[in-house]
């Protein structure tokens, strides 16, 4: 079990800066979701975290220490692109895990193979994308790891098996494992993760506890009797992240619970005020492409 600290991590490939001064702390026992558009730097961050790519600058610490070979014994990594051997079958892959990891649990491995209905005699060559993902998951969880790094762990899986993977993640977390995962399925991160960071162009553009991010972001919308709305007081309000006016409708994206600003709009003469909760997808889209969500609304003059 360890707290993983990524401190000022940068990684460039030639002139291309894939990861740019990323600082993230992943608390022990948490499920940490790394979100971001394709090419944002998620996989590079994982590789640097595990020492599989040399960092250009910055450090990664596990409970304050650098990664040691001994620590590797308790870490499972499921890379985005499967590293399975085409000519080997499932049983042979598990045998490989058994020889590599002291913590390997053969009973657990059998249960997991059954859970995903995998035939141990089937060669990888003959497996579908989903079966390959499932085998990689079985290999990862069969060693009862204390740290799991999962890069798109549900890609190619059907909804039943996706849910099975989420439940494995949740059970491991309940037993104290620290889990970092990336996923394009925001709904999965919304369920399984307690903390998250959003990467874009190699930089962290948003991070925090999932529930806090939701509590702290609302849209407050007011409908006014005319298009002339006195906005001067609002423009200086630090709680307001965005301000959009479209005719008689004023929409504020706020980093507060919204109640105070709803009352402010009321006292400014709004006939109708409502507070809209933002889910993680809204918050994510707002962070990676501000404005796209409310593209129909023009910025006030």
């Amino acid at each position: 079990m360890s707290t993983i600290s990524i401190e000022h991590l940068s990684k460039s490939y030639g002139k291309f800066l894939a990861v740019d001064d990323v600082t993230i702390e992943i608390p022990t026992g948490s499920v940490f979701g790394l979100l971001g558009p394709n090419g944002a730097g998620k996989t590079t961050t994982f590789k640097c975290l595990l020492g599989l790519a040399r960092t250009s600058s910055g450090v990664v610490r596990f409970d304050g220490n650098e990664l040691t070979p001994a620590l590797f014994e308790s870490i499972s990594y499921v890379p985005e692109r499967s590293v399975l051997y085409e000519w080997m079958n499932g049983a042979e892959h598990l045998e490989m895990q058994r020889r590599t990891f002291k913590r390997y649990d053969s009973k657990r491995a059998t249960q997991l193979m059954d859970l995903f209905k995998l035939d141990p005699r089937k060669r990888v060559r003959a497996m579908s994308k989903g079966m390959r993902t499932a085998l990689a998951i079985v290999m990862a969880f069969a060693i009862n790891p204390e740290t799991l790094v999962l890069d798109e762990p549900t890609s190619g899986l059907d909804p039943v098996n996706q849910r099975a993977v989420l439940n494995l993640i949740i059970e491991s977390a309940a037993q104290g494992a620290t889990i970092v995962l990336s996923s394009h399925q925001i709904g999965q991160v919304e369920r399984a993760a307690d903390h998250l960071a959003v990467l874009q162009n190699g930089r962290v553009i948003l991070s925090g506890a999932v529930d806090d991010l939701k509590s702290d972001r609302k849209i407050v919308e007011g409908i006014f009797p005319s298009e002339t709305i006195a906005l001067d007081g609002l423009r200086r309000d630090a709680r307001i992240e965005r301000l959009d006016q479209s005719g008689r409708i004023l929409r504020l994206t706020v980093t507060a619970d919204g109640g105070g600003l709803a009352e402010a709009l009321s006292s400014m003469g709004a006939q109708s005020v409502r507070i809209v909760d933002l889910n993680l997808e809204d918050i994510f889209l707002n962070a990676v492409s501000p404005g796209s969500q409310t593209a129909d609304v023009v910025e006030a003059r």
Binding site: L166, I170, A174
Partner: peptide, 18 residues
């Protein structure tokens, strides 16, 4: 238990604990 409810609902155990 926290673990049981987290697994039943498929949500993060720390969230249930909170």
């Amino acid at each position: 238990t926290v673990k049981q409810l987290a697994v039943d609902l498929t949500v993060n155990p720390n969230t249930v604990a909170r």
